[in-house]
Design a protein around this nucleic acid. Structure first.
Lengths: 194, 194
DNA sequence: AAGGATGCTTAACAAAAGATAAGAAATCAG
DNA sequence: CTGATTTCTTATCTTTTGTTAAGCATCCTT
């Protein structure tokens, strides 16, 4: 149940048995169905989720449309970070795309961990750094690449998600409409001159 | 010379006189002219810069074009973070837009600081979290807003930069061409029906 | 299995942005 | 101060995307 968490945490900091036990106690296990909202827009996110199994989507609402901002896979820490860290009402909703098995830690428990296990500062620093770098790569793809190029990159980097996530969600994640993504896919099938 | 650094650091962690002295010793002061390259594409970034005075631009190269990825103002920590943290050749160049006064810390000195002053983990964690949140806000503006809306937001959030940064750099930062930004500005001047 | 929702594709048209080029304006360096 | 870059605007044309709507397929639920 905690093996994936230990494995991921172990990539960032070394913990002994006692420390691992303290870490485990800070989390609770939770099983939720598909389409379950982990964090709702307008509410303050008090929980951070480690995904043991399943997929979680982060989305914004623009009018009555849902714009996907990120898709969290297994073994990632998912949260509406802005809300979680700054304690402001979330602009984002976190919703499962599949039935999920999660390890949940509250903001308060995490703060306690920082005191009882200061090493955790190193862990969260490195996780934050990694997420920042990841975000920057996505951002740079908006500056440097066309929608078609972004989709090609998505295809190779997230082959698995192509089967697990509806195309309209991928489209909004790429910053385009579903119609436009459909056209791009068609364009890509046809090599060149007809 | 260190007053701004202390003020900013103080927002994240409390340091006593001894700790502040240790912090200061890790940095060196550097004055550089306009158009000076602090980090070059292809090289590994070994330094992190705290900007006492001046402006620093981060840009990518796309063909022979320079695409601005970020503009660092006074009292920010500027770096090619991906390269700095992962020790990989940088895809980005950091170049001053004005003559700058900087406090410089090397990767090695920073690693030493983590040992001699573990509190610094808290500082860098919070700085990383803040930069992540900031990056996420920029990213969401690409998903949710039109180029015109992004420019309007830029206008209000960075009035000062409008005078200090050439428009073509603002354009690429917004993900559009200079020509397109010029059109948007014209459109915005004319209220509605002529 | 049937009905209803959801998701994907396609078409037609409008709106916006990219590319290229030329000229005006501002800035910089000697 | 003046010639030379650099920057900004404007115009024209092309390409792409957005919008709306319709049709079809697929998935889910009862």
């Amino acid at each position: 149940m905690f093996s994936a968490l230990h494995q991921i945490v172990g990539q960032f900091v070394e913990l002994d048995a006692r420390e691992n036990a303290i870490l485990e106690q800070a989390f609770t296990f939770k099983k939720v169905p598909k389409k379950y909202k982990l964090t709702k827009k307008g509410e303050i996110a008090t929980e951070l989720f480690f995904i043991n199994k399943g997929l979680v989507r982060l989305y914004y609402e623009k009018g009555k449309e849902e714009i996907t901002g990120f898709i969290f896979k297994e073994h990632l820490f998912a949260s509406s970070y802005d809300s979680f860290l700054r304690k402001v009402p979330s602009l984002q909703t976190l919703e499962t795309l599949e039935a999920c098995e999660l390890l949940v830690i509250t903001y308060q428990k995490l703060e306690e961990l920082y005191v009882t296990l200061p090493k955790i500062n190193v862990l969260t620093r490195k996780v934050a750094e990694q997420r920042f770098i990841n975000g920057q790569q996505i951002l740079s793809s908006f500056l440097l690449e066309s929608p078609e190029e972004r989709y090609r990159r998505f295809e190779v980097q997230h082959k698995d998600l192509l089967q697990r996530v509806p195309q309209n969600m991928i489209a909004s994640f790429l910053g385009i409409t579903p119609v436009s993504l459909s056209r791009i896919r068609k364009r890509m099938q046809q090599p060149s001159s007809p």
